[in-house]
Amino acid sequence: MSERLSVRKTYKLFIGGAFPRSESGRTVIVNDAKGRLLANAARASRKDVRDAVVAARKAQSGWAARTGYNRGQILYRIAEMLEGRRGQFVEELRDTGLGKAAAAAEVDAAIDRWVWYAGWADKIAQVTGSANAVSGPFFNFSTPEPTGVVGVVAPDSPLLGLVSVIAPVIVTGNTAVVVASEPGPLPAITLAEVLATSDVPGGVVNLLTGHRAELAPWLASHQDVNAIDLAGAPDDLAADCARAAADNLKRVRRPAAGDWTADPGTARMTAFLETKTVWHPVGV
């Protein structure tokens, strides 16, 4: 009897909770570090960006309306699902050229990062919000609210970097349209399979693979995107995207060389939060 032929996976996009091919029908060849074919990944187009933004917008108010406790539970569930597929992610990271120990360490860190951010869902408002002592008979308080739909140009760290830019955006109630790492897109799609089975509502995270320089400018200029994280954009692309983002005054987080294993702090969350201040008179 001959050896069993393995069943390969088709790597598609992740939009609105579904896994469509690019509407353009285009693909990009993804090879492993030794140059062997891994997959023909989808090469997303402008229209895929627009479809993803529509899905993200549709999901945003419902996601923001969830309680922090509920969002925290769902993010923790992502960690659980990722843990269950640990071996698969280690293999995919090894294909990108990481050694066995390094790949395992990156998967562990990514799982732990979800757990870390999950806990923030019902705590960030207590750290960034306030009751304000105004000079008059008013109750005055400030609370953080999600900015809305956030475009994310993911960094090249294909799993830990990706998780480190998605989790802080969605934990507070934003939804995301993410352009995955160009050289390492496959872990992003496998992560989408994790998200799809973690009770994350469709549209909260949308993942596109393809060419950054082609997709990021559409995201940056889209009038229904409220903010953009340029973590993985090279400097010249980031500058172009920041200029395009000015049209509807998107909040822009510029690229910064970062060590993804470091303590993330709260900056990535607060970058995509608005502060709302409410006044009410005090009286009988």
Binding site: A133, N140, T277, V278, W279, P281
Partner: peptide, 15 residues
């Protein structure tokens, strides 16, 4: 960014 309930155009350095 600012919501005034049963008041309007109130400002304060702490707000």
């Amino acid at each position: 960014g600012v919501v005034w309930a049963n008041t309007f155009n109130k400002f304060d350095p702490a707000s």
